[in-house]
């Protein structure tokens, strides 16, 4: 119960910042996701309990947003923007370089659970494409040639 209690308390602190507690549901889900790495059913139960919501409601909210993971993801998240601006300057080639380097396709997680590779919509770095978000920090611009070094760096754990 201790861990659930800690989450519960943290969520109360967040909820107190808003005029209405329901507003805390997204930050609470983010917090739970940081705990679990993704959002398993129990995460929805815990967030629900803390905010007086049903787990179904919490999942309905979470599933609307791309950054909440309803399935387990790798320890590292590599997201390649393939929207128009990045694609015009070679995003697909960057994506393919990652696919080759990691041995997975976009949307998949490596067998060792280290990396999830996925494409994302416009990340907001279009002038410096291709934008790649590595563990939520942007690298820009990334060229296919940069890819092995990025993967190597993550493998070596220098985060």
């Amino acid at each position: 119960m201790a861990q659930a209690d800690a989450l519960y308390d943290e969520i109360q602190t967040i909820a107190a910042r808003y005029p209405q507690r329901l507003s805390a549901v997204m930050p609470a889900l983010r917090l739970a996701q940081e705990r679990y790495g993704w959002l398993p059913p129990d995460a929805f139960r815990e967030v629900g309990e803390a905010l007086d919501l049903t787990p179904a409601y919490c999942k309905a909210v979470a599933s609307f947003y791309d950054m909440f993971h309803l399935e387990p993801v790798g320890r590292h998240m590599i997201e390649v923007c393939t929207n128009v601006s990045c694609a015009l300057v070679g995003a697909q080639q960057v994506l393919e370089a990652f696919e080759g380097e990691l041995g997975v396709e976009a949307g998949e997680t490596t067998e060792d659970g280290e990396f999830t590779l996925r494409t994302i919509e416009c990340a907001g770095g279009c002038g410096w494409g291709t934008v790649v978000s590595v563990d939520h920090r942007y690298r820009e611009p990334v060229k296919p040639d940069d890819v092995p070094a990025i993967v190597e760096e993550l493998r070596n754990g220098s985060e």
């Binding site: 929805f44 049903t54 787990p55 179904a56 999942k59 309905a60 599933s63 609307f64």
Partner: peptide, 26 residues
Amino acid sequence: ETVAEDGQLVAINRGAGSIITTFEDE
């Protein structure tokens, strides 16, 4: 959501992927 306020039957996902569902298999 707004009449019974039971929060059990919800829509999940977004856009054309939206579906009506309950929580997990409950």
